[in-house]
């Protein structure tokens, strides 16, 4: 648990800073630290705190140079594995790319779900569409490339893999990820009737819960 410091704070125009971090884990820790300081009232006003894969963007900052100097002195503790809320996502492992992913992983088609759901995940960052979270947690040996040809339509609820990330499509969009399963009811992923419309916010922990095989009806 060695405290770490961000590698570099870069200007992004007159009112924003982009903080470069060495890896996803320390990006998550730094993001969590920002939220702690914001909650404690010790962070100057920042309109948007936007984590990326290895960066955190601070946008809408009145005095970015001053904040950049302060950030450079922060000791950021590592993030505990059990820090943050947990969300469970039920999955039917029935995606059209299941066989392809099974071949890449060197496992049987019916083992993909057990493998995928055995790891704890965390939302690293959001983007692409409202409610779309990029989830880290899959070990490096199970990372798979995007499809050569993106699909023109990926259905809402598709559980998908690309590179280090897992994701669940909150709504139907074009997409190039490998589809391994389906969240039967994807409406909670982005629900504007809730005060917090996104289910998967940066830092949230995620568990995929396989649906019992009896419920698989065989249609993709």
């Amino acid at each position: 648990m060695t405290p770490s410091r961000p590698v570099q704070v870069r200007p992004a125009g007159r009112h924003a800073l982009l903080v470069d971090l060495p890896d996803a884990e320390r990006t998550g820790a730094f993001h969590a630290e920002l939220l702690r300081r914001r909650a404690a009232g010790t962070l100057p006003p920042v309109e948007d705190i936007v984590p990326g894969a290895r960066t955190v963007l601070l946008d809408g900052v009145a005095h970015p140079d001053e904040l950049a100097r302060r950030i450079a002195d922060w000791d950021v503790p590592s993030r505990a594995a059990d820090e943050g809320a947990v969300v469970e996502i039920p999955v039917r492992y029935d995606g059209p790319d299941l066989a392809h992913v099974a071949a890449l992983w060197g496992v049987g088609v019916d083992e993909v779900g057990a493998r995928h759901s055995s790891y704890p995940y965390r939302v690293a960052f959001c983007g692409f569409a409202p409610g779309f979270g990029y989830l880290t947690g899959l070990p490096a040996e199970l990372h798979v490339p995007r499809r050569d040809t993106p699909r023109t339509r990926v259905p809402a609820g598709a559980v998908a893999l690309a590179g280090p990330y897992s994701a669940v499509y909150p709504r139907a969009t074009p997409g190039g990820w490998q589809l391994i399963g389906t969240m039967p009811d994807p409406t909670p992923l982005w629900d504007l009737t809730r005060e917090q419309p996104a289910l998967l916010t940066p830092g949230t922990r995620v568990r995929f819960v396989p649906e019992i095989s009896g419920s698989v009806d065989g249609t993709p």
Partner: peptide, 10 residues
Amino acid sequence: LPSEGMVLGA
């Protein structure tokens, strides 16, 4: 470039 936050005017 790993995905990162983008500002208005970028």
